[in-house]
């Protein structure tokens, strides 16, 4: 089974984002960038499938300008076998990304395509579903457990009401949720080894992917700030405030 993992370069999870003063976007100048946390979980799951002898090869792909090669190298250091950078503008819309991934998946004859459920920058939560639709293949989003059973997958999904289990025939698309696994740290020898692993660069044109126009970003503003309220000295005072000031308790 060949596994394709799509990954995205995003602002580091721990960085507090700030909106630019002209409100055109958030300020990403000189900000630490990293592998999107959900993508990291997807890479980890693929590597575990390889270690279990289920996956034969793990190919990792990212779409963006040259710096996304850093995140591809991170994925290689975590255990992916080779990488593909599709050279395109950063912040491409989800449909364009899905169309590019469809071409890569076809070219690679991938059996399982793993993605994070969402990127922590745009918070879209779309690409995996779009890719599955374009390929007319089954999907399992928000996966918390993936079990390979021959030519099928049994996937447990985290849904609003609890857990749901689906059976999918391969090829299939799976998007990862937080509790699927805990990604490992890349060891120094593996980071060194990753530098020698193959990394191909392709363009959307070479792949024959047609790009779409995304929604136009008119402005970005900081959210309305909440003012810190008061500290109360006792539970009695708290209940009094809730009853008589906020009037949210009868």
């Amino acid at each position: 089974m060949k596994v394709l993992v799509a990954v995205k370069r995003v602002i580091d999870y721990n960085v507090k984002v700030r909106v630019k003063s002209d409100k055109t976007d958030v300020d990403l100048a000189n900000v630490k960038m990293a592998l999107n946390p959900f993508c990291e979980i997807a890479v980890e799951e693929a590597v575990r499938l390889k270690e279990a002898g289920t996956a034969t090869e793990v190919v990792v792909v990212s779409i963006g300008s040259k710096p996304c090669q850093e995140q591809l190298r991170t994925a290689l250091a975590l255990g992916a076998d080779r990488a593909i950078q599709v050279d395109a503008q950063d912040q491409l819309d989800s449909l364009s990304v899905a169309r590019i991934l469809q071409k890569v998946a076809e070219e690679e004859s991938a059996d399982l395509i793993l993605l994070g459920k969402q990127a922590i920058d745009s918070d879209n939560n779309q690409t995996g579903q779009m890719l599955a639709a374009l390929m007319d293949r089954p999907q399992a989003t928000f996966a918390s457990e993936v079990v390979v059973e021959g030519e099928s997958l049994k996937v447990t999904r985290e849904i609003d009401g609890g857990l749901q289990t689906l059976s999918l025939k391969l090829p299939a698309v799976v998007t990862t949720d937080l509790r699927l696994n805990e990604p490992r740290y890349a060891s120094l020898p593996n980071i060194m080894k990753a530098k020698k692993k193959p990394l191909d660069v392709k363009t959307p044109d070479e792949l024959g992917a047609q790009l779409s126009a995304g929604a136009e970003l008119l402005s970005v503003e900081p959210p309305a700030e909440r003012q810190a309220g008061i500290k109360v000295g006792s539970v009695e005072e708290l209940v009094d405030k809730l009853r008589n000031e906020a009037k949210v308790v009868a």
Binding site: S122, N124, N125, Q129, M130, A132, A133, F142, S212, A215
Partner: peptide, 20 residues
């Protein structure tokens, strides 16, 4: 989780983007 699961699929089949 149900809406997020289906809407992007609808959008992709219609050849449009989706607003989340």
């Amino acid at each position: 989780t149900t809406g997020k699961n289906v809407a992007p699929r609808v959008a992709a089949l219609l050849g449009v983007n989706q607003l989340s």
